[in-house]
Design a protein around this nucleic acid. Structure first.
Lengths: 258, 258
DNA sequence: CGTGAGTTTGAAGCACATCAAGTCTAGTGG
DNA sequence: CCACTAGACTTGATGTGCTTCAAACTCACG
């Protein structure tokens, strides 16, 4: 009931993200590639120091914008690797299959983030990417991206930063799983989401998570029940307001200090 | 006592690795850069499909071969990022500092593996790299490496594979920390070490670990006591012989099936 | 307004952490 | 070369945070 009398002041990032693709046909899987220069999330996926000619080259990278329905796979484990993807709108989870069919969530991705980098080494994907809501992605053939990176130095550096960022993100995750207790994990998870929303121009204090408790638990290495209990406890401690998937962060300082 | 009557048949990989650098001056920090084409671990760090001219370019990348004494840092967290390093001989751990000075091990590296990729995004290192024994590394200025990767396509692809491999390694680690019990973690750790030694031409069944139980525990997200107990348990189950840091794998199939 | 997936909450059990000896080992100096 | 010592390792006893199992509740959606 806490959030009922305290309605969301800012629209959820994901609502906005959905608006973003409204012009795209509902069921259509493919669309003509739009210009990066006209794309709202371009600052997130371009180096940002390119001249007109270079920009045109970058535009040519995006062969296709694909819509992925909620629950559908962008790619599956063991699929051959050809493309990387940049998330234009919506959100994904990446999962690996455990023995006995149980799935482990290895990451959540939101607008501006890149998917598919795990496929480069073995020339096939090692995890699957599943849309948490109707989402759109730019499809970028990796060979083409490499060609452009050999031509345009800032683009090369940019790709390396994206890959390095992924390495850093994962080592933070290793840190979290190796050293934190359940309550700290959930707090860190919320702060991380908040920060990523913040850099995308959404509210960093109020948002609507698209993932279930079970997916959060899997990601954080705890059970869904423990995840749920930690949300309740953080709420009791007045650090967040949580009503299902609606989250409001009340004291990010205290969350970080846990 | 088990290993007393069953002496190591193959020399430990680390012993060999030490022999490898015997020609280098003991205390000397720097040496003239040797040719990659004459380096024993070249197949591990080169694409392997280069002509003579390209090989010369690759040779020019290695500005220096540095010796790092046991316990010394190759780089520390927050150091500015300029170089990546390829481990010629010896072994390292990468660590991040927890709050209150406790350190968390995020990885172990052996010959042929690359260090320092975490520094690209923020232009400074986020973890520290500490030698577990006297080790030698090739120092490669990252800007130079990027230049060469814009010139030589196979080299570019190779770098991307190295980075992707690091991403995959870390997601496997996330999987391990998120889903496995202590005994499985230790088993997976041993199998992983064994496989890496195997691809380097060392015995994949007998080796000498350079890391302490405390470092292993930190890496695997368990205490040193639990790590020790799991080594004992695996020994009781006749899956390994473990006497301190000497390890012999008796039943890798059963270890994988845990 | 019923249905089922998602969520919350409680009770009991267990795997691992913590605390505490005691033993072993490698490196050091006599 | 061997005794000495500090760090590394093993093992036991006890405590606890999380999992597991179970049941009830919520809410979106037909």
């Amino acid at each position: 009931m806490l959030l009922a009398d305290a309605p969301m002041l800012t629209p959820s990032p994901f609502t906005q993200a959905t608006d973003f693709v409204r012009r795209l046909q509902p069921g259509g899987a493919q669309h003509p590639a739009p210009r990066c220069s006209q794309c709202a999330i371009s600052p997130l996926c371009n180096p940002g120091e390119l001249n007109a000619e270079e920009l045109a080259q970058v535009d040519s990278l995006v062969q296709e914008v694909r819509t992925v329905q909620r629950g559908a796979s962008l790619y599956r484990a063991n699929d051959p690797f050809h493309n990387v993807y940049i998330l234009r709108s919506g959100s994904f989870k990446t999962v690996v299959m455990h023995r006995e069919g149980r799935e482990q969530v290895t990451g959540f991705q939101i607008a501006g983030e890149m998917l598919g980098l795990d496929g480069i080494v073995g020339e096939q994907h090692l995890c699957g990417a599943i849309a948490l809501e109707r989402s759109t992605v730019c499809v970028i053939p990796f060979e083409l991206l490499e060609d452009v990176c050999r031509e345009i130095k800032p683009m090369q550096r940019h790709l390396h930063k994206v890959m390095s960022r992924e390495i850093v993100r994962e080592s933070n995750m290793i840190m979290l799983l190796g050293t934190m207790r359940a309550e700290q994990r959930v707090a860190a998870f919320l702060l991380n989401l908040a920060e990523r929303y913040g850099t995308r121009g959404y509210s960093a204090t109020e948002f609507n998570m698209r993932m279930t408790r079970s997916e959060i638990g899997s990601y954080l290495g705890i059970t869904l029940e423990t995840a749920s209990r930690m949300f309740s406890r953080l709420q009791q401690e007045r650090l967040v307001q949580a009503r299902g998937k609606q989250i409001r962060i009340l004291d990010s300082g205290a969350l970080a200090r846990l």
